[in-house]
Design a protein around this nucleic acid. Structure first.
Lengths: 119, 119
DNA sequence: TAGGTCAACATAGTTAACCTAGTTGGCTTG
DNA sequence: CAAGCCAACTAGGTTAACTATGTTGACCTA
């Protein structure tokens, strides 16, 4: 299945799955084929499939549930805002990241201290 | 180097490098240590380091040049960035938020559990 | 029947090894 | 000296095998 373009196999598979999700062939909430099935389907090794799925997972397109499977994310954000609002959304998101980072740093340092001197 | 938080090593390393870049410890244009050096530095396997670098590469934070090294991207002014890139930045920020949220949830639950039943 | 066990399957993380290919610098040879 | 070869580095792609952990269903037993 993987074509002999210069593009690495794990990206080709990630592209293909992404396409299937965007195109609706894999509906939100639907499970992807198992790693083993995908490996056979694309005639690729398990590692390659895992890398491809890992990319989609990292992109948030897909959510892996250990022991169950990998599912297409049920996203409810259908193009609500016009493109002109993208800039403000970026600012919004930056603020959220700042906030999360601070909380995380605080709580992680607390955690490491309590590990160093328990109780 | 990799701490025994629940967070996988390749993400810890990616986080650390990302931090160094954002913080200026690794200036734009500067080369990262080689894969082998990073592996020794973090006391991790080559594969893990490659995964971590692959993440940063995927995020566009870093550019790998085969045969030479991996270099911190010399970023052009964000102001001049065309609007078409805003969308991809939103995606990037979203994944960052998702990532931070997961870390936060994990570490906060760890904290509350250790309060409930201290080891 | 209710409950426990166990095998099979799933994702996820990690490691080690092998291969390709680009770059660099030093050494040899013409 | 100049050209070319070569060894030693670099990143990147691929594969296989192992561990950990979660889920499910079938089966056995009390």
């Amino acid at each position: 299945m993987v074509k002999k373009t210069g593009r690495p196999g794990y990206l080709q598979i990630a592209d293909d799955l992404r396409e299937q999700i965007r195109g609706g062939a894999l509906a939100p909430g639907a499970p992807l084929p198992s790693t083993a099935q995908l490996a056979e389907q694309y005639d690729a090794s398990l590692s390659i499939v895992k890398m491809a799925v890992g990319i989609l997972r990292n992109e948030g397109l897909v959510i892996g549930q250990q022991g169950k499977g990998v599912f297409v994310r049920e996203d409810e954000q259908p193009e609500k805002r016009p493109a002109t609002d993208l800039a403000s959304e970026v600012i919004e998101l930056r603020t959220a990241i700042q906030d999360l980072s601070e909380r995380l740093a605080r709580v992680e340092s607390t955690l490491s201290e309590s590990r160093r001197s328990p109780k």
